[in-house]
């Protein structure tokens, strides 16, 4: 019988920048799935909007030779995460499945982790999240609503991982590649986001989609010189008219 085993997988994501159109579907899908508070106008004006995944836009050149480049940025779930050792209360730690995890009921809000994160993907709850009463109907019961003073970030939709693993165990079968989709991946219309098990041992006989992409010629990681060893791998944007040499942002 297949049992629910924690620590059997190593989760990762591949982001194909060449497919990203900047449509924001991933951003809102994540917000809805994970009960991320509404970003009011005031929050934006005070530069305190929250987004576990965001799409950054960079300009390259001037009109008419101008390009807009989009890249989705989320927690990189680093193997050598700078955010982890700085937490005085072990609210953020690395779990056995390769994920950088935030324990909300340990967090005391020092924000050291946010200062330590070079990718700036951790968001602090400066205010108590507020929804009109009727909007509480659509909150996801699988995900904690974080209170004021708590740090939060992308969890790779851990609740979906748990549900997927449990369902596979319940049905006495192995988890299939692609069976678990993060909310951002599920939404992405161009298939720019691919989530999956990237543990080499688990991909020997039947390589999964994410695993088979991480060694692509276009694969790179963000800020590699920091040696954070991220579990989010990017595939470079292709410019067919580029004639070699430097480019990008």
């Amino acid at each position: 019988m297949t049992t629910e085993v924690f620590g059997k997988h190593k989760w990762g994501m591949v982001v194909d920048v060449d497919r990203c159109t900047g449509c924001q579907a991933c951003v809102l899908a994540c917000q809805v799935e994970n009960n991320v508070p509404l970003n009011t106008q005031e929050r934006y004006e005070r530069a305190r909007g929250m987004a576990w995944i965001r799409v950054e836009r960079y300009w390259e050149g001037e009109f008419p030779d101008v390009k807009a480049r989009f890249i989705p940025i989320l927690c990189q779930h680093c193997e050598n995460a700078p955010c982890e050792p700085v937490c005085p209360v072990f609210a953020t730690y690395h779990n056995p499945e390769g994920m950088n995890v935030q324990i909300y009921n340990r967090c005391v809000g020092t924000r050291y982790c946010a200062n330590g994160c070079p990718y700036i993907v951790r968001f602090f709850n400066y205010w108590e999240p507020v929804w009109p009463e009727s909007f509480r109907n659509h909150l996801n019961p699988d995900v904690t609503v974080r209170s004021r003073g708590i740090m939060e970030k992308c969890s790779f939709c851990m609740q979906r991982i748990r549900r997927g693993v449990r369902n596979a165990a319940k049905e006495n079968r192995e988890l299939e590649d692609g069976e678990i989709q993060t909310a951002c991946q599920q939404a992405c219309p161009t298939d720019a986001l691919v989530f999956g098990d990237i543990d080499p041992d688990n991909n020997r006989t039947n390589p999964g989609r994410a695993y088979s992409m991480i060694n692509d010629d276009r694969a790179y990681t963000l800020l590699p010189r920091l040696n954070t060893d991220p579990n989010v791998i990017y595939l470079a944007k292709v410019d067919p008219d580029r004639e070699g040499g430097a480019g990008g942002h």
């Binding site: 920048v17 480049r69 963000l222 990017y234 944007k237 292709v238 004639e243 990008g248 942002h249």
Partner: peptide, 12 residues
């Protein structure tokens, strides 16, 4: 250049 959006040419 190339951080964070890395751009490659064809066959690069």
């Amino acid at each position: 250049p190339g951080v964070p959006v890395l751009v490659v040419g064809p066959d690069e």
